[in-house]
Design a protein around this nucleic acid. Structure first.
Lengths: 148, 148
DNA sequence: TTAAAAGTTAGAGCGCACTCTAAGTCAAGC
DNA sequence: GCTTGACTTAGAGTGCGCTCTAACTTTTAA
């Protein structure tokens, strides 16, 4: 069960760099990793699962600071901090949900703009077809309007 | 129609700081803004619409570099770069869609964990009720498992 | 008229999350 | 044994997107 992976192997498995793995350990996101007799890191499967969960938090934008706080709870009160940890995760979930909502809202405006460009593009083809060289009127202001 | 707002008013209207507004102009995201006789910036409603669109791009994570490229197209070829601009926005839309998907996937794992904690929390209450002081077995490894 | 508030610029500084370097030790294959 | 590559550390450097400072001018309200 204990496969005792090297840092390089873990880097490949988690898509983090060896630098980042050491960095995470240095700033206490990861508890001190076991060592071989010569002092090289040897990661257990538990370590890897923890790192994988950390990356879920990171990829949803949780700041290192908060992850440190969470990691501290896990390490210092593994069996008595479920409530606090859950609260942290719930707060984070809420902020991610908002983040997704905002992305979707802003994406809608961009979609609208794409549609608008498609129309202008079609129109400019028409103009080209009818060989009329008059310069287009829209979007010619220096800072063009998003509404144009 | 031309309300000619001051930088402060635009900052309030767009939720950007005056510093950021000058910064955006400095790095050519915004074309040089008109000035009052004394040299103070005076923003037109067109400027504001452009800034609002810029912030949509920013809030969906478009890097400044790309926004600069986009702004350049708008300024240097307002009537002939629809296709290029559309392509940029479509590529961006795709990357935002992926970003949202990734957020949702990772959020699912976090949700799962929240659920798990809720159960552990309930269980620890039970234990407390039955006055049994045996220390819990799960999550007691130094780097606890995400699967626990 | 004068004090405070708001504007200007060039350029320095900051916080975040890495990312890399230097100088050295350790491990595996020839 | 020796080379090559992977490992170690402390600490410096990087890129991004702001954010602030200093020194100065202009506007505004009392």
């Amino acid at each position: 069960m204990e496969q005792e992976l090297t840092i390089q192997q873990v880097a490949e498995a988690t898509s983090l760099s060896v630098h980042t793995l050491r960095y995470y350990e240095r700033c206490n996101l990861i508890a001190p990793i076991g060592r071989s007799p010569s002092g090289h890191r040897r990661y257990s499967s538990n370590d890897i699962r923890w790192i994988e969960f950390l990356t879920k938090l990171r990829l949803t934008g949780m700041p290192i600071r908060q992850m440190q706080q969470y990691a501290l709870l896990v390490r210092q009160a593994p069996d008595t901090s479920f409530h606090e940890r859950r609260q942290m995760l719930e707060a984070h979930r809420e902020s991610v949900a908002q983040q997704i909502q905002q992305l979707q809202d802003n994406l809608a405006v961009i979609d609208w703009k794409i549609q608008h460009y498609a129309e202008l593009e079609a129109k400019s083809h028409e103009l080209f077809q009818s060989a009329a060289g008059q310069s287009a009127a829209s979007e010619s202001a220096v800072n063009q309007s998003a509404a144009s």
